[in-house]
Amino acid sequence: MKKLFFLLSVSLIYISCEKVIPFEGDLNTPKLVVNSIFESDSIFKVHISSSRSVIDISPFQNIEDAVVKIKDDNGAIIETLNHLDNGFYAGQVFPEQNKTYQLEVIHPNYNNITSTDSLPIPITINSVDTSTIVDPINDNRLQIILNFDDPESSQNYYLIETSSVNEKLVIENSDTLEYELDTILNQTMILTDEVFQDGGSPFREQGLFNDLLFNGQNKNLELEIPNEEYWNFSDGSTEWSYKRLSLTLYLHNISKSYYYYRTSLELYQNASGNPFAQPVQVYSNIDNGFGIFAGSQVSYFNL
């Protein structure tokens, strides 16, 4: 290793200097940040926080005293949300499918922000077929074929994810130390369907795709879940053993804004830390601020 270091220092003898330079970004004008996804089975829930400069080290602040309004597409107020706790605001109205909603947030210390989005229609899952792929090397996998009809009228964007309930055992030297029911959100899936061919790894916790390849058609979406029913891992003395009791598939029909936000966020997280990758801009549909206010319609299927 020393030799390598020596070699490097000979060849890079002139490469060196690091210098701190003044940062010319805006330090003093934080903006409001919205995190809100509205779905037809729950009331409007909005989280408001504030941004900071990248070289600021103070913690992010929840904003608890903003005026948060939901309006219809004509600008008429539907309701003003109440602050619940830790920057979360909620109302009483359930959003309706195919309707457009406007969010307005007013706070004396920040620029007012607005955003608009609508709630897509739900997708009916026609059927779900499962089978086991026998694989002695990588363990058996559960193959799922999810059948649904894509609406013809518009371009649709989808998000697929899972949650599972599992029996978890912690075993040490053949003694069971712990037993509990463990709910795992976003279990890893193997997404090899053509709609996911964007160059990324097929192993994902959530699958984002659109209907460019099957607009208005019936779609059989294929995916696999590793570890058919049981899996375990151990560090030599302790073993963690899982048995899947139930699995739920969620198919969200999401708005275009949400799709852009989620895909760019996923890219951002994958590229972060890689100096060779192009930097990624995360999409936002908030005017004068950051974050997302978007509609998502969920259908689910219990296996």
Partner: peptide, 25 residues
């Protein structure tokens, strides 16, 4: 060059159930 100049918090999931114990940082 491309530099991110401001930071903010984003939620990876829409599911936030226990808001009273929510921690933004």
């Amino acid at each position: 060059v491309t530099l991110g100049l401001e930071s903010y918090s984003s939620f990876n999931s829409s599911l936030v159930n226990d808001i009273s114990n929510f921690n933004l940082n």
